[in-house]
Design a protein around this nucleic acid. Structure first.
Lengths: 346, 346
DNA sequence: TGACGAAATTGGAACGTTCCAATTATGAAG
DNA sequence: CTTCATAATTGGAACGTTCCAATTTCGTCA
């Protein structure tokens, strides 16, 4: 029952040619005569041959594999990112190793090592919290192209693809201020990450730009999840001087904030303005639809993959740091409905 | 700059032993003397050797790779499933190829072929809609263990791991009936899938068991997504004889139903009972917390991975079909709060 | 007809590992 | 000091492909 492997040699025998010719056919070389090509392909079909890539990339030191490691696949943002990567990687005839680190550096080290052993020809990584440049050093020394996504790492000599978190946060807060809000909170996220840092700076800058004093009490960290959002908004509403609006660290937190608001009989959008960050698929269909800073996770995954493939093709490319632009998409959760009403009155 | 590969031979030279001994060390064989093992390991560290798995599994025809292909990674359910698989697969020293088919059979065919070429030693697949037994035939003939998850395929001679959709749906509807509901809808999901079929049958059976007539108007299909849930509930509320409760195809639909309810100023849980299916992470933290039939996606992924690894280890195992049990977890969205009140009065 | 260049094909070495059979070192027993 | 069993080590073949250099085939032109 266990049939043994069919190899190029079997094909060669069946088609009456040499294994070299078969190899040429497999690679789509133009050197081979149309008639023989047909013969070989017929033999391949008949014998049920399956190409052995391990053998191939033992000889030619280049595999058709890329690796992608994410810090939290449970978060829709990263799932969508992975989908974006997958799409372009597949069309390019590559396949992807995907690993989830769950923010654990040790696990990250392991999976990166494992991927190296498997001969990936490039790596897209959204690094776990606390990853440092030295952690990536062996990888970059080996000359494998690496693209960092979402989170950049200072001093790591690799390409990165991040989004303009500072500008996005400023745009969001400006919008809130235009709507008349003065007590604006920044909710959720781990304060020790670069992304948090950037978004929070944008938040502060927009506030001071408008002459509104920044109060540290209104900056409340939490896990960057829906549950984290609930606890963050609870904490915010215990303040003596409650906020009337919030920019949230990401969409997951924003959804949690909406949940927390409803738990206190407050209607997001009407009684309290909330803005998210990311523009996850669900943001559009939620009720109220979430106003959010769109970073287009799927598109980001695609661009990261394209950048990586470009570098793989080019051999060793010098690192480039791309920061993608970002735009505020205004929906209902920030009180746009109220605004519309106001417009009618005006 | 481009340093060439360090191989076992280099290590052997550096450590003053033969390549065979180095190989033995790499495999953790007990045949090698403690002192030489130390020497070899030192050399490995010093030279920055990285193991070449392609070469290894060219020789020994067994790789440490498994493949997982899912139909929609954008859906949290499958993302969590993948995380579960990843966890056990990683601990077993394997790595996973993950591919997303987006319900496209053609893509599925491609990725499965690609994974075969890369020599995966097993495959977990949540098949795209419309996959038939013949599509998997070449795969099973080759003797590669396959575990189907979530969706079973009639006639495919492979193992499967599904959940007891019928019993889960019955339990949910019984619960709704006990709460006094009579007009109960079944919302969302593609009607041409086995999962839909099973859940819907459970819904009907619970209804007829209680002597409540089944009305086809109350069974409304849609995409199994949040957006689909919104449209399904809209359609349901246009009915002359409106439902007062709904069992939803999955949690995503249930969230959408909640959104749609709110859009009509109806409070899920209080004004309309909704029950989901899956028990995605968010179900617990949402407001109102979602009553749902728990199938524990992450646990399911783990079990699938364990089953697959078992079969890989055993060589060729005969297929087994496991249907995981399922339980109703009662939270707020079905009006449990009301019930509690009633208990107090009694 | 012979010569020549282009087109097509080919054998063999190489990639980095594992496995087998064979060899050598070590130590215990007589 | 042999003899033997056991522990350690080793060389070489093999895995399935690609690549190179070499060879054969073919059509064209003088």
């Amino acid at each position: 029952m266990v049939k043994e492997r069919v190899t190029v040699i079997d094909i060669a025998r069946a088609a009456g040619v040499s294994k070299s010719t078969v190899s040429l056919v497999l690679q789509g070389s133009s050197l081979v005569n149309e008639a023989t090509r047909a013969k070989v392909n017929a033999a391949i079909r008949d014998l049920g041959y399956v190409y052995n890539r391990s053998a191939a990339n033992l000889r030619q030191s280049t595999s058709k594999i890329i690796g992608i490691v994410v810090n939290d696949l449970t978060n829709s943002f990263f799932a969508e990112l992975a989908v974006g990567v997958d799409a372009v990687v597949q069309s390019a005839g590559f396949v992807q190793f995907l690993a989830n680190t769950g923010e654990k550096i040790e696990r990250q080290r392991e999976v990166v090592a494992s991927m190296r052993e498997h001969g990936v020809s490039g790596l897209i990584v959204s690094p776990a919290r606390g990853t440092e440049a030295v952690d990536l050093a062996p990888l970059v020394e080996s000359g494998i192209p690496v693209v960092l996504v979402v989170r950049d790492i200072a001093g790591a000599a690799v390409s990165s693809l991040t989004s303009d978190n500072h500008a996005g946060a400023m745009a969001a807060v400006r919008h809130l201020i235009e709507r008349g809000h003065q007590r604006i909170a920044f909710l959720g996220g781990f304060p020790d990450t670069a992304v948090f840092e950037a978004r929070m700076r944008g938040y502060r800058d927009a506030l001071t730009e408008a002459g509104i004093p920044v109060s540290d009490a209104l900056i409340i960290g939490s896990a960057p999840s829906r549950a984290g959002g609930v606890t963050a908004v609870e904490q915010a509403m215990m303040l003596a001087d409650r906020p009337t609006a919030a920019l949230c660290f990401n969409d997951a937190v924003a959804f949690g904030v909406c949940d927390g608001l409803r738990a206190r009989r407050l209607e997001p959008g009407a009684d309290f303005a909330v803005i998210g960050f990311d523009d996850v698929i669900e943001a559009k269909t939620a009720v109220p639809a979430l106003t959010t800073v769109s970073v287009d996770p799927q598109g980001m995954g695609q661009r990261a993959a394209e950048l990586l493939l470009k570098q793989i093709k080019a051999g060793k490319a010098e690192p480039e740091a791309i920061v993608g632009s970002v735009r505020l998409v205004v929906r209902q959760s920030c009180g746009a409905a109220v605004e519309r009403k106001r417009e009618v009155l005006a």
